[in-house]
Computed example of a mutant assay.
Amino acid sequence: MFIEQGINKNNDFWKYILGSIIIIGVATLGQIPLTLVFLNESLKTNKIPTNTNEALQSLDSNLSLFLMMLSFVFGFIGLILVVKYFHKQSLLEITTSRKKVDWSRVFFSFTLWTIFTIISTIVINYMNPGSLIWNFKPVPFALLFIIATVLIPIQTSTEEYVFRGYLMQGFANLSLNKWFPLLMTSLIFGSMHVLNPEVDKIGYWVLVYYIGTGLFLGILTLMDEGLELALGFHAANNLITALLVTSDWTAIQTNSLFKDTTSPGGMWEIFIPVFIIFPSLLFIFNKKYQWTNWKEKLTGKISI
C-alpha cells in the first residue's frame, strides 16, 4: 500500500518538518539567479516592481520561465537527498506501491488531460470569438518549447513528490489514518498559490480551485496507490497550457501559440473544474483501473 510505505517508527513527524525546511532551503538557492536578474533589471530601468506580475513582465518571458523553473530543479535534488539520507527511503517508495513506475499510467493521464485541454480551448474560443488571438512567433516559441518540455515536468513532478508523496506519507506517520494526509496536503498545496497573480484578478475564491485540484490529485494518488496518474495530469496541465495559451494575468506568461485577451471569467471557472470536470475524470480512471474500497483507501486507519 502506497501511503503505508512511509510508516516507520524512526520516521517521526519532526523529521518531515525539518526535511521540508531543507527542501525549501535548497530550492531557494535556485531562486538566486532569478533574484539577481530582477535586481539588475531594476537598476537598469530604475524601477522596482511592486508585485510578482510586474517583476515577471519586466523580463523576456522565456528567460523568466527558465529562471523560475530552476528553483524546482534544486528543490527536486533537495527532495532526493532528504528522502535518501534523512528518511532512509528510496525514491520509488514515495512514487508508487508497484515494483516499478508504471509509465503507461503517466502517459494515459497526460494524454487524457492534453486532449481535454485542447478541445476545451477550441470550444471556449468558438463560444467567445476573438477571445484568443494568434501569438505564434517561430523563434521564441521554439525556445519556449525546449525550456517548457524539459523544465515544466520537473516543476510539476517536484510538487507531486513533495505533496502527494513525501508529505502525504509524513502526515500518515503523524495521524495513522488516510483522510488527514489527504486534507492537509490539499490545504497546504492550495495555500502555496496564494501569491499567484490570479488571486489579484479573481480574489481568494480562486484558492477553492487550487485546494480542489490538490484534493483531486490526492484522491488519484490514494485510490491508484501511486503518483503516476497525478504526475501525468499535473505535467499536462502546466505544459500544454504554457505552450497553448498565455495571458497577462496568470502566474506563468509564455510565448505560446495563443494569447487570451479576456479577463477572468468568474466563479464558473473555479467551480466547474472542481465539481464537474475532476469528478468526471475520477469516474474515467475508476472505470479504467477498476478501483475498489473507496472509503477504506480515502479515510481508513493505518495499522503499523
Rank of each mutant, 00 (worst) to 15 (best):
M168Y: 05
P129H: 03
I284W: 04
F271L: 14
A172F: 00
N237E: 10
L217I: 06
Y289L: 00
M127C: 08
T149K: 05
L167D: 02
L112Q: 09
A142I: 11
A148Q: 07
I252N: 06
V162C: 03
L195G: 08
T241L: 11
L174I: 10
M168V: 07
H193W: 07
S175V: 03
T96L: 06
Q5S: 09
Y209H: 07
F271Q: 01
V139I: 15
L34M: 12
H87V: 12
L195V: 12
T156G: 07
N62Q: 09
L79S: 01
V37P: 05
N40I: 13
A242W: 00
H193Y: 04
I154L: 06
F107R: 04
N46F: 11
P129K: 11
P273G: 13
N40R: 01
L79C: 05
V206C: 04
T95W: 01
I7S: 05
S303M: 12
F189Q: 00
D60T: 13
S263Q: 15
E269M: 15
P197G: 11
F285A: 10
G165Y: 08
N62R: 02
G130A: 11
L34V: 05
I23S: 09
F258C: 08
H87G: 00
I3F: 02
F74S: 02
S247E: 10
P197H: 03
D248Y: 13
W103C: 10
Q5P: 10
M1D: 15
T241P: 07
L298D: 09
T95V: 02
F2E: 14
N125M: 03
S71T: 09
F107V: 04
M192D: 11
S58P: 03
W268V: 12
L167I: 05
E228G: 09
I202L: 04
L81P: 07
R98M: 11
P264I: 14
I22E: 03
I32N: 01
A242P: 10
M127W: 07
I211A: 03
S256H: 12
K99N: 15
W249L: 01
L91H: 04
W179C: 03
G130W: 03
N255C: 03
F283C: 13
G265L: 01
Y161N: 08
W103D: 04
T111D: 00
N135W: 15
